[in-house]
């Protein structure tokens, strides 16, 4: 009990700090890739603290409530994961939380944010199979859905699950809303969608959205780490390195690709999921 409470508290405090630093690092590395110097490392923190101080204009009252629900469910997911509960449960709560964001986008009736919201639904449809397959893979390889037991396995789970790993990392690009799959937010401005689902969010609501994203990213990268971690304490170091490498890979993809249309996204993701995770699943069932 003590241990669970402790890990939840550590997650609540450390995740936004790490998430903010990762985001800042992302912006610096992106700038360097484009031949620019880029903003300071703490820029995301400056942005959020400014947003929190600005006048609150909400187009619709329910929007603030919906964003707060999104905020709490996503944090709750992370808490469950790092406290070592069922990974399946984590992903279902994560998806439930994501629907609050969709509501928050469509409740304003602005054409841009409604369009962003329906694209967010399409994104969910694309990554959901990969995510569910990943849960299944963890169960087949580790014999349990419980994160606390999965981290105690004899060998790193990636030994059994290379195909699932590929599918998961692929769907991570969609989850993190990075180009070529940033359909719902279009994080580079002046595009056809303005700011997509976040168009009608300003000041405090947008700040909450950013903080939620930091928590969410730490959770998603935590799942990447789960592929690596095993009984050996040194595997934690390896997991951190792999997580950083995956994050760098995402930034690279983000900076080298243009946004695709939704139908292409759906087809590509499902094909990758079916081929890599599906083959892995078959092999796993045959040898086990």
């Amino acid at each position: 009990m003590m241990k669970i409470a402790l890990s939840v508290i550590i997650f609540l405090i450390a995740a936004p700090i790490l998430g903010c630093l990762l985001d800042g690092g992302d912006r610096i590395i992106s700038a360097r890739m484009q031949g620019r110097i880029g903003p300071p490392l703490l820029q995301p923190y400056y942005d959020v603290s400014k947003l929190l101080q600005k006048q609150v204009i909400a187009v619709s009252r329910s929007q603030s409530l919906l964003i707060q629900m999104f905020f709490f469910t996503q944090i709750f997911t992370g808490c469950l994961f790092f406290a070592g509960f069922d990974i399946m449960l984590c992903f279902f709560i994560l998806s439930t939380g994501a629907t609050f964001l969709v509501f928050a986008g469509s409740v304003t009736h602005s054409p841009y944010s409604s369009m962003g919201a329906s694209r967010e639904l399409l994104q969910m449809m694309s990554y959901e199979p990969a995510v569910l397959m990943t849960c299944l893979g963890f169960y087949l390889a580790g014999g349990t859905f419980n994160v606390s037991e999965l981290v105690q396995s004899e060998k790193s789970l990636i030994m059994y699950l290379p195909g699932f790993f590929v599918a998961y990392v692929f769907s991570l690009t969609i989850k993190m809303r990075k180009s070529p799959f940033d359909l719902s937010t279009s994080h580079h401005p002046h595009q056809e969608l303005v700011k997509g689902i976040t168009t009608e969010m300003g000041s405090r609501n947008l700040a909450l959205y950013f903080i939620t994203e930091w928590y969410e990213n730490i959770f998603l990268l935590g799942v990447v780490g789960l592929f690596i971690i095993n009984k050996n304490p040194w595997s934690i170091l390896a997991a951190v390195l792999v997580v950083l490498a995956v994050y760098f890979f995402e930034i690279l993809i983000d900076n080298t690709s243009a946004r695709v249309k939704w139908d292409k996204m759906l087809v590509i993701t499902w094909i990758v999921t079916l081929v890599s995770a599906g083959t892995n699943l078959l092999v796993l069932m045959l040898i086990k």
């Binding site: 700038a31 110097i37 820029q43 400056y46 401005p189 595009q191 947008l206």
Partner: peptide, 20 residues
Amino acid sequence: PVYDAERFGIQNTGDPMQAD
């Protein structure tokens, strides 16, 4: 890259709700 206004944290948003 020549002037890189993002050094000062300047961002070009297309969205009045988020602009200063």
